[in-house]
Design a protein around this nucleic acid. Sequence first.
DNA 1: TTATTTTTTTAGATTTGTCTAAATATTTAG
DNA 2: CTAAATATTTAGACAAATCTAAAAAAATAA
Lengths: 217, 217
Amino acid sequence: MQSFTEENYLKIIYHLSENNDQAVQTNAIAEKMQTKAASVTDMIKKLADKQLIDYKKYQGVRLTDTGKRAAINIVRKHRLWEVFLVEKLNFKWDEVHDIAEELEHINSAELVERLDEFLSFPKNDPHGDPIPDKDGKFDAIPFVKLGKLKAGDQGLIMGVSEHSSAFLKHLEKLGLTLGKTLTLTTITDFDGSVEIIVEGKKISVTREVAKHILIRI
Amino acid sequence: MQSFTEENYLKIIYHLSENNDQAVQTNAIAEKMQTKAASVTDMIKKLADKQLIDYKKYQGVRLTDTGKRAAINIVRKHRLWEVFLVEKLNFKWDEVHDIAEELEHINSAELVERLDEFLSFPKNDPHGDPIPDKDGKFDAIPFVKLGKLKAGDQGLIMGVSEHSSAFLKHLEKLGLTLGKTLTLTTITDFDGSVEIIVEGKKISVTREVAKHILIRI
DNA sequence: TTATTTTTTTAGATTTGTCTAAATATTTAG
DNA sequence: CTAAATATTTAGACAAATCTAAAAAAATAA
């Protein structure tokens, strides 16, 4: 089994290579881990020794099959705990990330499977992210970022790509929660902000915010 | 906030001084922590620096008020999680200790209070131990150990003082679970084992087992 | 009460994950 | 294509928690 810290490295490497299939760079890991590149190099060697990642000097890293399986298992636990916190303990979607960061490291396969069952095998977490099943499989629902839509496009909010409390609270206040339908009316040339209509109300959203809202058309 | 390891030391010191009000010895801590006396001395100094324990060389340690509060909070979390595992996830009473050992270190006051509420503010864990409320208060129900009863005494099983899976499975097999009423018929001079009647069935229990069954007369 | 045993502490080393500063590779720009 | 900028690695150090071996204090026994 991996240490707490090793697990966090695996998870971060997984998320960094989730979309593009590229090797992950030392500096990118350092930024996400809030640490220095030198520390990352040290840890990278350790994970490579354990065959959890493939690593060649200066070439970045890729998860091995074993490493990927471990990473997905952590993601699975994180998202199941988030569902638990929201569905059973009535936390809000912006309050659960940090607690789930801790809970995801609890080490008991039995616990995870029973939790999954207790929650009726949810397919998505409170932020719309898919929850891998116990074999690591999940459906990656296709989405477009709000920032990429054209004027006139209509769609459904099905996720976010930023999980900070500040961001989620902001969306909440704008009424931009999961499942809401929206129509994009205008894209502002000046600053890239977009005008949308949600439940009859006109709202303006900055380019930065629009980038992190995932839409199913 | 304390580290994982510091929390375990506090918890163990708490349990070692729970009944007798004595100072706790280095060796006793070492045994419970599965470590060496030298390591304990090191940690003791650290906890004393943080004012979580009172310590004079060669004199053993006592929790300060702050240390005791921290320890009781860990115990509270441990026992609440055990209730969750048994009541909600259908674990058996002999399966929950190790998982709760991990969960007790999750750091969120809000989480604990909501869990407590979700579980309807339970007063006891699955082994009969009292659960401290959020101010650290709890009723210590008076008990007698089965090994101390006299022939003819009758009582109710209201707890155990040993939480290993092996021990609890053994009790389960004998039908000696919480809430059962028993009558002591004979104490064997030879080996101290006791004969009891539970639900009409005669059972023999070794001295070692009898020592860890808590009875309310 | 002296000697022996037990308990506790100290000294110095080890491991894990981190750091800074300096060196080396790689990439980008002129 | 060389020079500058950026990215990565190495070397050496540090804090946390542990260890072994040896020294010191306390408890027990003769």
